[in-house]
């Protein structure tokens, strides 16, 4: 996958959802429509120098704005910056929505489990299920006084909501509700690791097929822009830096050396170049295990140096 382009969006509104969670709404500064997204998608936000992923909470259908809800998790880092520094009217650097926690269109029913701030992608799934009239049920576990978006969940879910205050009540609710879902139901859960372990254990005990049990971990952004390194072209002896966020292919092309390329996602195999020296971090889908072990070639559009230097036979 290519490293996605960053866009600057305007913060249109910030509101406190709980004492430790604030909702940030973003829109295009020129009023252009925003791209739609699949429920459960996340935005990668550059916040005070770090890249953090936050779930979008809307249904994703032709959205008028992007909404994320940020839990403050410490006194430095991205979430603190979003709480303490960011103001309405500011511009925020975000990468387009990425999807890795989609609902199953073919599911007979969606069984959604949220714990704590894990409610954010579940709210998105719930909104989409209601928009399309798909059967849905929600179990929301929270600590009293810290339930983000509880009113919205109640309003959307109506009678199809089970609230569980505290971990013991959540365990009971999962055991009870997961035993009675109709065949063909898909379960989606988002929350802290301990709750996800509880969820998968409960699903296993109740005989759920693993393919119908889906998890969203609090995630790090995928396919990182990579560490900077120095590339050297053996035949010309030229040396140049490859910054984080720039692919080796882009850097080689910028140096005026022609390398054929097509997909730029590590699948078509066009930009295969020979390696002269240095260890490679292979990130493509073309080379097999043997190729990677031999490491005589790499795909320059996605793969990078594993260390600080890499020499190509170009």
């Amino acid at each position: 996958m290519s490293v996605p382009a960053t866009q600057l969006l305007r913060v249109t509104r910030i509101r406190a959802v709980t004492d430790r969670v604030r909702e940030i709404r973003l829109a295009d500064p020129d009023g252009r429509p925003l791209a739609g997204y699949a429920p459960g998608s996340h935005l990668v936000v550059t916040a005070g120098g770090t890249r953090n992923a936050y779930s979008l909470t809307g249904s994703g259908i032709a959205p008028g704005d992007y909404r994320i809800s940020v839990l403050r998790t410490g006194d430095d880092g991205g979430s603190a910056w979003l709480h303490d520094v960011l103001r309405a009217g500011d511009l925020l650097a975000v990468e387009p929505p990425r999807s890795a926690f989609r609902p199953e269109l073919a599911a007979r029913k969606s069984f959604l489990v949220a714990a704590g701030i894990g409610v954010t992608p579940i709210l998105s799934h719930l909104a989409a299920a209601r928009a399309w009239g798909r059967p849905v049920e929600v179990v929301y576990g929270y600590r009293p006084g810290e339930a983000a978006h509880l009113e919205e969940v109640r309003q959307l879910a109506g009678p199809d909501l089970v609230e569980a205050q505290g971990r013991v009540a959540l365990a009971d609710a999962l055991r009870e509700r997961m035993a009675v879902q109709p065949w063909g139901t898909h379960a989606h859960a988002c929350g802290p690791a301990a709750v996800l372990d509880l969820f998968t254990a409960t699903a296993r005990a109740a005989g759920w097929p693993p393919a119908r049990v889906h998890l969203e971990h609090f995630r790090a952004p995928e396919l990182s822009p990579g560490r900077p390194f120095t590339a050297r072209l053996r035949r010309s002896g030229r040396e140049f830096p490859v910054p984080s966020g720039t692919s080796l292919l882009e850097a080689v092309l910028a140096a005026g050396v022609e390398v054929p390329s097509m997909c730029r996602q590590g699948v078509c195999g066009q930009c295969l170049v020979p390696v002269a020296a240095g260890r490679v971090d292979h990130r493509d889908l073309v080379l097999d295990e043997a190729d990677r072990l031999a490491s005589t070639h790499l795909l320059a559009c996605v793969s990078r140096a594993a260390d600080t230097h890499l020499e190509l036979d170009l």
């Binding site: 996958m1 387009p96 929505p97 999807s99 997909c263 996602q265 699948v267 078509c268």
Partner: peptide, 16 residues
């Protein structure tokens, strides 16, 4: 197989 893997990784808004 590669095309299949590629398509499954397509992200919203991407067109190939």
């Amino acid at each position: 197989d590669r095309a299949h893997q590629f398509l499954m990784r397509l992200q919203p808004g991407e067109a190939y």
